[in-house]
């Protein structure tokens, strides 16, 4: 799905990431952990093609990233659902409109996905909040809405950047359960988090690989989490 071969990234003043050799296989579940500023977000940006590796090779859905033009990147990105920590909603649109946005930008008329939208909001427990504007939502509601938006286009890969960072334990568990459900539906999941308790809780429910960023390198973490 996404694979890196000796890939690295630098903003020009020393490498942020280097020697990355890994692949996100279809249907796999990964946690990416490491201290703040270690490069977790940079790695996620590489995964959703907001950045290109400055060295090595990266394949996105089988295509070398360096050969993708803007249209190619757009097509690849439509196979990726992204949950940002700050959610990145358009505040003037309602929750329903925000969640439906990935289909709207494809030119699909609302009538064609209104039922899917209702199912999805029900799945994340926001069926009563459809007409609310993003600023009116709580942190947990925003994260669940962001997850709904990430998956409405039925992506192959879901990337989540600190999806439970601002949430209490119970809400964090709820988000985790949704991600695990998605994984059971065959989606590849990559969650960047520094919350080790979340990772421990997940490992009892799903077979997850833990990637740890240390000094710019991504290592597969052992069992001692």
């Amino acid at each position: 799905m996404i694979s890196f071969q000796k890939a690295g990234f630098s903003y020009g003043i020393g490498p942020i990431l280097e020697g990355i050799d890994l692949s996100l296989a279809p249907g796999s579940f990964h946690f990416l952990t490491g201290p703040s500023g270690s490069g977790k977000t940079t790695f996620l940006k590489l995964c959703y093609l907001a950045l290109r590796p400055s060295e090595g090779r990266m394949l996105a859905f089988g295509a070398p990233v360096e050969e993708l033009d803007r249209e190619g990147i757009t097509r690849a990105r439509r196979r990726i659902g992204i949950v940002h920590q700050d959610c990145q909603f358009l505040d003037h649109l309602t929750l329903v409109e925000n969640v439906g946005l990935p289909l709207r930008v494809l030119g699909r008329p609302e009538e064609s996905y209104v039922d899917d939208l209702a199912d999805l909001l029900s799945w994340v427990g926001l069926e009563e909040r459809g007409e609310a504007l993003p600023p009116e939502l709580s942190g947990g509601e925003r994260q669940r809405a962001a997850l709904a938006r990430a998956v409405i286009g039925s992506p192959d890969l879901v990337l989540a950047d600190e999806p439970t960072g601002n949430l209490d334990w119970e809400m964090g568990q709820r988000i985790l359960r949704l991600l695990i459900e998605l994984n059971r539906l065959g989606k590849t999941i990559l969650v960047a988090t520094h919350d080790l308790n979340l990772i421990r809780a997940a490992k009892s429910q799903v077979e997850a690989r833990v990637l740890r960023i240390s000094r710019g390198r991504i290592l597969t973490a052992g069992a001692a989490l």
């Binding site: 990105r77 494809l106 286009g153």
Partner: peptide, 16 residues
């Protein structure tokens, strides 16, 4: 600019 960024990340093409 943030609207452009969000749209781009959710898969909107340049033309849209």
């Amino acid at each position: 600019q943030s609207v452009i960024l969000t749209l781009r990340l959710i898969g909107a093409g340049d033309a849209f």
